[in-house]
Design a protein around this nucleic acid. Structure first.
Lengths: 225, 225
DNA sequence: CTCAGGCGTTAAGGCCTCATCAAGATCATT
DNA sequence: AATGATCTTGATGAGGCCTTAACGCCTGAG
């Protein structure tokens, strides 16, 4: 769940944002001035910061600088219309985006999504390790401690990748055939047998008694961790 | 120098942006419709894209999708005031920022700076050394202890740079072709073979048995450290 | 006990991809 | 306009991958 910290001194805005963001599955925390806001950033480590420039105790750019000193989380700035120079100063201080009050909730939400999307390109766990080999999905590489790198053909790799991405889960033959060979090969379960045998020969300590690439008779295959 | 591509059909805006951006040391190129705009992105490889949503030939979100299909350069969108829904659609299609016309040049410049700053990747280790040569990414320079500096052509360097930045990881043929030659050359794997052979001849101790620039048949290439 | 169906294993042939070379086309520089 | 470097394109041979088929094993049903 994405965590959002809102720093604003107007209770009505805090309330509106809390309601709207919570309804969209964001986890919302709030602060009413710059000092407690900076403390909240350090304490809660939110994923996004929404910051009103018109705070009672500090200048908005100071807050931005304070945050930018040690983290690069996205900052979306709010301010009243017409303060062109503040807007520029905020962006140059390190803010990521800017919304003018009064603002439409749709626009704020869209900018929020864009900010989160930009900041979080980190996908899921790209390295899976078993007792006998390691699969690095990002590097497309399989390593065996005893034999060094393992060379896989494209088809072998595609198959392994699907199984590893669904590790622990059963993957049906249909799904494997469709994703590797295409929808026209749904019934060619022969291919699976051939390639699973090859993968086991390259990866399993005892290919005839697989510990990781398991067959679920009549159903499909499962990568066991 | 930062290269900016402006896609807009209003000559007055093109002119204003060209003057203002050039004065700030940006390198400006322009296009007047979506079709030539997409072509210009592929050809010129700008660092930032400024896109007007009201183009004569295509919907703005189509242009964004076309660009986002193969690169993640920052996109700043321009549109007239009040089109809340288009604004949201553009951001969701993958735009990075949004400016409402008429806009102040200071604001646009600030957003431009913010976009460029965000997109600049972490300047990590710019020098990579292997047992037989050294690649200095910042200085764009390759040195061989036995032969001194190695002269690389621009294309050779681009290719090597991508592989070195992804050292250890497999880079697919598609990605290499897209990033060096553009999205229209996705299938010209011939180019890769020719240029990889040239790089090996210049860098590898035994070009016929590469130790660093490895081929992963059917998948792509890998720079091994 | 027999049989059928699913699975594992192996091997051989066709086809695709890769490496290499070379020549034509294009670009940059003078 | 000329020259040299660079990029593009095509051809060729070699090697590896994909496909396909055959056979034996196992399990469960009749």
């Amino acid at each position: 769940m994405t965590r959002v910290l809102v720093i604003d001194d107007e209770p009505s805005i805090l309330r509106a944002l809390r309601i709207n963001l919570s309804a969209r599955q964001y986890e919302v925390s709030t602060a009413a001035d710059g000092t407690s806001g900076l403390a909240a950033v350090a304490r809660d480590r939110p994923d996004v910061l929404i910051l009103d420039l018109g705070l009672p105790d500090m200048d908005g750019t100071e807050v931005i600088s304070g945050v930018r000193g040690w983290t690069s989380i996205p900052i979306i700035v709010l301010s009243v219309w017409g303060q062109e120079s503040m807007k520029v100063a905020a962006l140059d201080a390190g803010a990521d985006d800017y919304v003018t009050k009064p603002f439409g909730m749709d626009e704020l939400l869209a900018r929020l999504r864009a900010a989160v999307r930009r900041s979080a390109p980190a996908p899921d766990e790209p390295v899976v390790t078993t007792g006998h080999f390691t699969v690095d999905l990002a590097a497309k590489r399989v390593t065996r401690p005893d034999h060094g790198d393992v060379r896989l053909t494209p088809t072998e790799w595609q198959l392994l990748e699907i199984l590893v991405r669904n590790r622990g889960r059963l993957v049906t033959q249909r799904q494997l055939l469709q994703e590797v060979w295409g929808p026209a090969y749904e019934t060619e379960s022969n291919y699976l047998r051939v390639y699973l045998a090859q993968l086991r020969r390259k990866l399993e300590p005892e290919p005839s008694q697989p510990r990781y690439l398991l067959t679920e008779p009549g159903m499909g295959y499962r990568f066991q961790v």
